[in-house]
Each structure stands twice: as C-alpha cells, then as structure tokens.
Amino acid sequence: MPPPISFAGDIFSLKTVFLLAGLFFLLCGNIAAEELSGTEYRVKAGFIYHFIRFTQWPADSFAGEDSPIVFCVAAAEPAAAILRSLENKMIRKRRIKVKIHTEAEELPVCHVLFVSAAYEEKQPDILSLTADRALLSIGESEIFSRRGGIIRFFTENEHLRFAVNLKAARQARLRMSSQLLMSAHLLNGDNRIP
C-alpha cells in the first residue's frame, strides 16, 4: 500500500519536472562555449612542442636527417612527468626524445632544455654549462632571460605568455620562424617584459 503522504510529493515532483524541463529547453538552447583551461605544465608542454617545431638548429647539431631531438627537462615532479608526454612526438622527420633530471654532463647532448624556476634556484649556473651550444633553453624566471636563456614563460591573467631573447637565440645559432616570433614578446637586450 503506498503511503498517502507521498501523493503531495508526487504532484510536486511532476510540477518541478515540467517547470524545470521548460527552463532547460529555454536555457540550454543557448549554449555558449566555456573558456578552455588546462594544467600549467600540460599547456606548457603544448607550447614547448611548438617552440621545437618552429626552431631550426644548425646542421651540425644532428648526426643525421632523422636523428632525434633531445629534450632535457630540469624540473621536479609532477612537471617532469607531464613534459615527458612529448616523448616520441614527431617533428618533420625527427622524433623527440625526453631526458629527465638532467645532470651537468648530460647537457651537451640536449637540443632543448627546460629549466623550472625551482630547479634554477637550486642550480643557478645550469645555463653557463651550455654556453655557446646550439641549445634552445626554456625557463620560467626573469633572471633566466638575463642569464642568457632564450625563451621564458610568464603569466598574464592566468594565461601563459612567452618571451624570446633574440640576442641569445642568435648566439646559439638558432633560427626561429616568424610564426613563433609573432606570438612572442620580443626581448632585445633589455630583458623586461613591457
């Protein structure tokens, strides 16, 4: 025997459903896209992929036409693991190879080096080990650019931006495509973001 008390509840439920269903069709007809969001390092991984794509290394940096691009990551977890997702991505004929927790002696084999802000605090001289090599260095702090780092990330209203130190890029004999430079904040000697 159904309890008599629930009757009022049933009527109410039905009314609610009709009312809310009406609202649903009114409101849901007008669907707008929400802003895309992502975890910092996953988005950075996306950027770095394009940095590599739009950079040309001097011919002597690679043994052969299809030898891999070595991407060294000087960062702690979980950033390192996320950046590792670029492993095996193809850029033209080259495959990306990721090396984590770069030791000083491993640096010569790198084509790309990412240094997290925390890692740089711990080992501020990491860039000096790579001076004059055709290395695309990517960092996260202002001092990184001043020390000769080529690309550095910064944030603007929770959106990622990047700055390119053209002088440092030239010294490293790297050629960057206009697609990259047009999206970048360009630094010329003065390393401050306007």
Partner: peptide, 8 residues
C-alpha cells in the same frame, strides 16, 4: 595556447 587559462 595563449588563450588557454592555466590552473596549477
């Protein structure tokens, strides 16, 4: 990518 909001 520049339009992606980051969370950390």
């Amino acid at each position: 990518l520049k339009n992606v909001k980051i969370t950390s």
